[in-house]
Design a protein around this nucleic acid. Structure first.
Length: 440
RNA sequence: GUGGACGUAGCUCAGUUGGUUAGAGUCCCAGAUUGUGAUUCUGGUUGUCGGGGGUUCGAGUCCCCUCGUCCACCCCA
């Protein structure tokens, strides 16, 4: 076993998985752009107080999951556990939120010191959007539609959109009091975690997994019944919009987001294929946060999605990235041919920027080189040897077609092409190869 | 943070009540084929049995500790 291992919960991403990651990020960047969102890049480290003030002092994230350390000046710094706080901080710091609308997206690693599990890691990655300065349900609808389109573009199916409203800060406070009053009557029957949360974060009792607690909650007052008129109108507007766009959803009156800053709309995309890590995308409205961090009152809404969970889901559903295999594998025999092969390869890359060309390295006889060519997944092998150099030509060998013909016991397909014509003819040769592949 | 299962070759795994020098498949390399990739055949490389300690004449196997992965809880993306 190796002397060094990666730190627990901090994972490497290797090929071919990296191809899926690249595909996911490319699709996401395209989708964000198609809604007019601009990318914001944020530091991984912020002052600890920023997260304590935004996420909430008594949340699990702040209480026990942050990677916090003192720097050399003695300042308390924290590896970001989520992206919204940093986005708001940057927006305020650079005047992005001053009396204007902003549509932003970000992507990158986040850090939480939790026990690792499939789909849950200490360094994990999120994609997220944040929209500032728009108070109506239309922007809630937009960010949800954006998330729906992203999932669709990635080919991810089988998701459920769960929706709820937490109401305004005032109704939430009033509801919390009513809920506590109700639950205290059954306190002795609640599970231990819920009894603890009854004092620290009573709304969290709503999504307890304990059956007996859920039984008690059937009679509890619900958030939706407690909504003030304005929040109800907002919620109804969003529901109408979702129906207009044909986006299916289910109302989940027990849906409570874990972070303190949410108000009114909250939502989650969930799956039943990831075990306990069911949430792949989640967000909501946080109208009070900007003011809480020292800015002017600014309505805001956003969501974040876990990249590892999306990747896991894509794999579970058999989705693959576009094939990254080289189109062409160049074999060279002998010292002179090897030198020429390097020059030829650079010339081909100059002439055909789209071409994926692998050049044999490490020598080997032709059989070994062709074996590598085959394993690389290339459609064509180019063979450059003494004879070809002398004739100023190159052998072009069809690797994929030959497999089929070999089975049919017919001769392999191979032809000599003058070196001078190779750049012009290569795309045609590849196309023929592709056609033969699809139409045997 | 709590509870449980599991760690043997790069990968997937076998390994009997504790008993010689730890195995298979795959992968990789070489040869059969002095310049032609599937398949086949022959040969070869690959391990501190996750790590440390203990019991024993003897530990991959039993015990303790530790690290890691996975599952559930908790939490969340």
């Amino acid at each position: 076993m190796n002397k060094f291992q990666s730190v627990r919960g901090f994972n490497d991403v290797l090929p071919p998985d990296t191809a899926l990651w690249q595909h996911l990020h490319a699709v996401a960047a395209r989708t964000f752009a198609s809604y007019g969102y601009g990318e914001i890049r944020l530091p991984l480290v912020e002052h600890t107080a920023l997260f304590a003030r935004s996420i909430g002092e008594v949340t699990d994230i702040v209480e026990k999951e942050m990677f916090t350390f003192k720097d050399r000046e003695g300042d308390s710094l924290t590896l970001r556990p989520e992206g919204t706080a940093g986005t708001v901080r940057a927006g305020l710091e650079h005047g992005l939120l001053h009396n204007q609308q902003q549509r932003l997206w970000y992507a990158g690693p986040m850090f939480r010191h939790e026990r690792p599990q499939a789909g849950r890691y200490r360094q994990f990655h999120q994609l997220g959007v944040e929209a500032f300065g728009m108070a109506g349900p239309d922007i809630d609808l937009e960010v949800i539609a954006l998330s729906a389109r992203l999932m669709r573009s990635l080919g991810i199916g089988g998701l459920t959109l769960e929706l709820n409203s937490l109401g305004s800060a005032q109704t939430r406070t009033a509801y919390r009091a009513a809920l506590v009053e109700f639950l205290e009557r059954y306190e002795s029957s609640l599970d231990a975690d819920s009894r603890r949360r009854l004092r620290s974060n009573p709304l969290r009792v709503l999504d307890s997994k304990d059956p007996q607690t859920q039984e008690i909650l059937r009679e509890a007052p619900t958030l939706l019944d407690a909504l003030d008129d304005a929040s109800r109108a907002h919620f109804d507007g969003l529901r109408q919009g979702l129906e207009d766009l044909g986006i299916a959803y289910t109302i989940n009156p027990r849906l409570v987001r874990g972070l303190d800053y949410y108000s009114r709309t909250v939502f989650e995309w969930t799956t039943d294929r990831l075990g306990a890590q069911a949430t792949v995308c989640a967000g909501g409205r946080y109208d009070g946060l900007v003011e809480q961090l020292g800015g002017a009152p600014t309505p805001a809404v956003g969501w974040a999605s876990g990249v590892e969970r999306l990747i896991l889901l894509m794999k579970a559903q058999g989705l693959t990235a576009p094939d990254p295999a080289p189109h062409v594998y160049l074999c060279a025999l002998g010292e002179a041919a090897q030198r020429q092969a390097q020059r030829l390869a650079e010339r081909l890359r100059d002439a055909l920027p789209w071409l994926r060309l692998a050049v044999n390295a490490g020598g080997g006889k032709l059989a070994a080189q062709l074996k590598r060519a085959d394993r690389s997944g290339a459609a064509l092998a180019l063979i450059l040897g003494e004879a070809e150099l002398a004739a100023a030509s190159i052998q072009v060998k069809s690797l994929r077609a030959a497999h089929r013909e070999a089975r049919e016991s017919t001769p392999e397909q191979q032809q000599a092409v003058p070196l001078a014509e190779l750049p012009q003819r290569l795309s045609g040769l590849l196309e023929a190869e592709h056609l033969m592949r699809n139409h045997p």
